[in-house]
Simulated assay, not measured.
Amino acid sequence: MKLSHLIVFFLSFYLISTAISASEIQIVDGNDSPIEGLVIFLTPITSAGSDSKISPAQKSIIEIAQLNKKFKPYIKVIRKGQTVKFINKDDISHHIYSLSNSKKFAFKLKAEQMPELVKFDKTGAVSMGCNIHDWMSGHLLIVDTPYYTFTNSTGIAQFNIEKSNEYWINIWHPQLNSDNHLQRARAVFPLNQRKKIKLDKPMLEIPDQEQIDDFDFLDGY
Rank of each mutant, 00 (worst) to 15 (best):
M114I: 09
L141V: 10
K122V: 14
T149F: 00
A111I: 04
K108Q: 10
E112V: 13
D121T: 06
S47G: 12
K110D: 15
I161A: 01
A185E: 15
N101L: 12
E63S: 15
F107E: 05
V126K: 00
K80P: 01
Q158C: 03
G129W: 07
N177R: 02
I87L: 03
I62N: 08
F86H: 06
V77P: 05
H139G: 01
F71G: 07
G124R: 06
H94G: 08
Q66P: 05
N101I: 07
S164I: 08
G155L: 04
D90P: 05
F86M: 11
Y97G: 03
R184L: 13
I62Y: 04
I87Y: 01
P73A: 06
H95F: 13
H181L: 01
G81Q: 06
N170Q: 09
K59M: 08
N131M: 07
K163D: 10
K85I: 03
C130A: 05
K122P: 00
A48E: 14
S50E: 15
Y147W: 14
I96W: 00
I92K: 03
N101A: 14
L176Y: 04
L117F: 12
A106R: 12
I75D: 09
S153L: 07
A125F: 05
S100I: 11
H95S: 11
Q82G: 09
Y148L: 02
V84G: 07
S60A: 11
H95L: 11
S127D: 09
C130D: 14
I61E: 10
S55G: 06
V126A: 05
I54G: 02
Q66K: 09
E162W: 13
M136E: 15
P174N: 03
I161T: 03
G81S: 05
Q66A: 13
Y147N: 14
S164N: 04
S55A: 12
E166I: 12
D179C: 04
S127W: 01
S137D: 09
G49L: 07
S127E: 14
H94Y: 05
E162H: 08
T149L: 03
T83M: 04
N170I: 02
T145G: 01
Q158Y: 06
T145H: 04
L67Q: 15
L99S: 13
I96Q: 01
T83C: 06
E116G: 00
L99P: 00
